[in-house]
């Protein structure tokens, strides 16, 4: 079963990215994920101010600066993993170094479209 670990970071967490200790903890986390054979994909995202949003309104395509939702916590990254069940997925989510400063959402992912 595939699960998406979505990491919603506070400003504090975004700031912590510059800290070499935090970077080392992330490197260790990603490495543990891949050596356990559960890692499928993942990436960190820069600040939501770098986002560009597309939508259709009255048949017109609108392109706007900024994220879709302007919230206090913003989507700061995601990990896609393959594990047997939700308990295992939560176990990996709990190991995410962002957690003390972030809200982490774990969602089952649909199987890939063939």
């Amino acid at each position: 079963m595939r699960y998406a670990i979505l990491i919603y970071e506070s400003e504090e967490a975004m700031e912590a990215r510059k800290d070499p200790q935090f970077q080392a903890a992330y490197a260790a986390y990603v490495r543990a994920l891949s050596e356990a054979g559960v890692w499928l994909a993942g990436a960190g995202l820069p600040s939501a101010s770098t986002a560009t949003t597309l939508r259709m309104k009255d048949g017109m395509r609108l392109v706007q600066d900024g994220p879709y939702a302007d919230t206090k916590e913003e989507l700061g990254g995601f990990v896609l993993i393959e594990v047997p069940d939700l308990d295992r997925a939560l176990e990996w989510a709990a190991r995410c170094p962002s957690l003390p400063m972030a809200v982490i959402e774990v969602r089952p992912a649909l199987p890939p479209v063939v």
Partner: peptide, 15 residues
């Protein structure tokens, strides 16, 4: 040590 850190849930033990 790195692997252990990656598996830890506790920021202080990680550190």
């Amino acid at each position: 040590y790195e692997r252990a850190s990656g598996l830890s849930e506790d920021p202080h033990i990680r550190r």
